[in-house]
Nucleic acid binder design. Structure first.
Length: 508
RNA sequence: GCGGAUGUAGUUCAAUGGUAGAACCUCAGCUUCCCAAGCUGAUGACGGGAGUUCGAUUCUCCUCAUCCGCUCCA
């Protein structure tokens, strides 16, 4: 069976991530746990770098954004105010015929005549099924169509010549037990709670129920007043937060892209209501640019505005920053105009005034919010995918594939590797000296095993931008070789000039 | 949660109803070694559980995980 090429890249990357210590499956030795991934030594560095780049760009380099680090477990009423308790715990039903899924509370009530069947028999094989099934017919439709639908149901379960059994009819009023599209019976409504539930305190009764936050944003709204007062910020201004969030996803999928425990990088930017649209545009551009600046090619990125029917009830406009994943365009970040919905909700539920008084204009209003909300863990996956490259470097008859992660230097786990040409201890003292010097400023790896070529390739594969080689000449001329990951070019430089050169090449 | 596929060293694969081989990786030794050089040696696997069987990695069932599709989202 031919494996689609898109999948190959993904499989190679997942394999590299494990082999080199970027990403492991959570609880690996126990067989893993669906939707959870651990970050190994290099992955931990990479993920921190992603978050730090975001934090630096979004808060430290700006005067109009301040940070927040709130708890994962908060007062459960926060999630009632935000709407998560309702929208994240809908009972769901599946159509028994098409397997289409419905929110039980959104099914339009149906009336008509229900045809019940107790089972069916295969007239060819004699095999019988005793699964009960029913079809609802709107008034006026012939009974035959109900029987046809029922026959399909049993045929899908393995009968070829279906003979329906135990037919009876029942008048039904305003029922939500049937698929409005085809009349087929639905499964019993099953609760679907996308929020992780836990108990605060050792007594696990109903009153102690709390939730692991499904997003970091709500803490920002809940602390809006405290931050506003203590930071002495004036609207427009923003509050940024990076942290874990948890969702009981129906289907965790695609490596670290959709997981049940993940990390978000969220900004809530508060603006005067009238300035909403222009700030929305500003943040869309700003955020797209951030990905480009950190090494994702523009042709793998796009910004896509939501259609009206995709919009949340509170949003007047949302755009996604999407990345071309091996499985297609998918979301890295959503930039939403949330209006004053959240602050008003929390104001109403808490009884606190969460409005803002604009001194110069002498007006009082609830600020509108622009929310650029990015997934740190899926962004990391995108950076890895964009950086992954295989290059033919063989000479003529002999093929040689060089695998290289062309990560942005800011993101790369190691910035520099120090490699003594030989393990001979004549080189060791100088190599260690260079390592200490560079390590004071940059995350550095030191490797003296195996051949120099192999070590270069190893560093290429984990995305180290620069390698420094200490050789026997270095002992005499106090110079070393600096080799670039992307071009494999080398330059000889006196050790005294090494640090400025690294700074120049790395860009920081 | 539903449907389909898959599961053997760290990775990628092979073989087998009589307890498993390789390549790469990793580690150690030799080698003044600048682009996966060579030689020697070493570590290391049948996802988990139950059943059938004299005996299961192989057959059956269950379970867990991964991939693809449905669905959903940062």
């Amino acid at each position: 069976m031919a494996v689609p090429k898109e999948n190959e890249v993904m499989e190679k990357l997942v394999s590299l991530c494990k082999r080199r210590g970027f990403v492991f499956q959570s609880s690996d030795i126990y067989g893993g746990i669906n939707g959870f991934w651990d970050y190994g030594p290099l992955g931990a560095e990479l993920k921190r770098n992603v978050k730090e780049c975001w934090w630096t760009t979004m808060t430290r380099l700006r005067e109009d954004v301040v940070g927040l680090d709130a708890t994962i477990i908060m007062h459960p009423r926060i999630w009632q105010a935000s709407g998560h308790v309702d929208t994240f715990s809908d009972p769901m039903c599946d159509c028994l015929l098409t397997r289409k899924r419905f929110r039980a509370d959104q099914i339009e009530p149906q009336s008509g005549l229900a045809y019940h069947f107790s089972g069916a028999r295969d007239t060819a094989t004699g095999r019988t099924l005793t699964d009960a099934y029913a079809v609802l017919l709107p008034p006026g439709k012939p009974p035959e169509s109900a029987r046809r639908t029922a026959a399909q149901f049993y045929a899908a379960r393995g009968l070829s010549n279906v003979e329906l059994q135990g037919e009876r009819t029942e008048k039904v009023e305003n029922s939500t037990r049937f698929n409005p599209e085809n009349g087929s019976l639905l499964t019993e409504p099953r609760p679907f709670n996308l929020m992780f539930k836990t108990y605060v305190g050792p007594v696990g009764d109903e009153s102690a129920i709390a939730y692991l936050r499904p997003e970091t944003a709500q803490a920002i709204f809940a602390q809006f007043k405290n931050v506003l007062e203590t930071s002495r910020q004036k609207v427009p201004f923003g509050i940024a937060q990076v942290g874990k969030a948890f969702r009981n996803e129906v289907t965790p999928r695609n490596f670290t892209f959709r997981t049940r425990e993940f990390e978000q990088m969220e900004l809530e930017f508060f603006v005067p209501p009238a300035e909403g649209p222009q700030w929305y545009e500003y943040w869309c551009n700003e955020r797209l640019d951030w990905y480009v600046r950190h090494g994702i090619p523009t042709d793998l990125l796009r910004i896509r505005a939501h259609d009206d029917d995709e919009l949340s009830h509170y949003s007047t406009g949302t755009s996604d920053v999407e990345f071309m994943f091996p499985w297609g365009w998918d979301e890295l970040e959503g930039i939403a105009q949330r209006t004053d919905y959240d602050l008003k909700q929390h104001s109403q539920h808490s009884g606190e005034r969460l409005d803002y008084f604009d001194q110069p204009n002498n007006e009082r209003y609830v600020p509108y919010v622009i929310e650029p909300a990015a997934g740190a863990t899926r962004t990391m996956a995108a950076f890895l995918l964009a950086a992954y490259d295989e290059e033919e470097v063989g000479d003529g008859d002999k093929s040689d594939i060089r695998t290289v992660l062309r990560l942005h230097p800011r993101l790369a786990p190691y910035k520099v590797a120090v490699l003594p040409l030989s393990k001979k201890d004549t080189l060791t003292p100088l190599a260690h000296e260079v390592r200490r010097m560079v390590g004071d400023r940059y995350m550095v790896d030191y490797d003296e095993t195996q051949s120099i070529g192999k070590r270069y390739r190893r560093q290429d594969e984990i995305g180290t931008p620069l390698c420094i080689t200490v050789d026997f000449d270095s002992l005499d001329d106090n110079a070393v070789t600096v080799r670039e990951r992307d071009t494999m070019e080398q330059v000889r430089v006196p050790i005294a000039e090494l640090m400025p050169l690294l700074t120049e090449k790395l860009g920081f």
